[in-house]
């Protein structure tokens, strides 16, 4: 391998950071969100927000 080739390989692109993603797990989609969240101290009903588990689950369309 020539030095020029070596340096060319060393020029990393930010695009390379995306090699771990694919069509099923693309950039922008979270995975592994498998735990429902239950706060220790529930808010009062008047202030209660909708159930968060389903809202934040990124694979929910």
């Amino acid at each position: 391998m020539t030095l020029a080739k070596l340096f060319a390989k060393m020029k990393l692109s930010q695009k390379d950071a995306e090699v771990i993603f694919d069509r099923d797990e693309p950039v922008g989609k979270s995975t592994d969100l498998v735990m429902p969240w239950r706060p220790l101290f529930r808010r009062r009903k008047a202030n209660a927000s909708p159930k968060r588990t389903s809202q934040t689950h990124s694979l929910q369309s």
């Binding site: 990393l12 692109s13 930010q14 390379d16 950071a17 995306e18 771990i20 993603f21 797990e25 693309p26 950039v27 922008g28 989609k29 979270s30 995975t31 592994d32 969100l33 990124s58």
Partner: peptide, 19 residues
């Protein structure tokens, strides 16, 4: 470096910094 980007679905902030 694999788990964090993969779970949140966002590439590493700076690949140059990682290198």
């Amino acid at each position: 470096y694999y788990m964090i980007p993969k779970v949140i679905g966002r590439p590493v902030y700076s690949y140059h910094l990682a290198a």
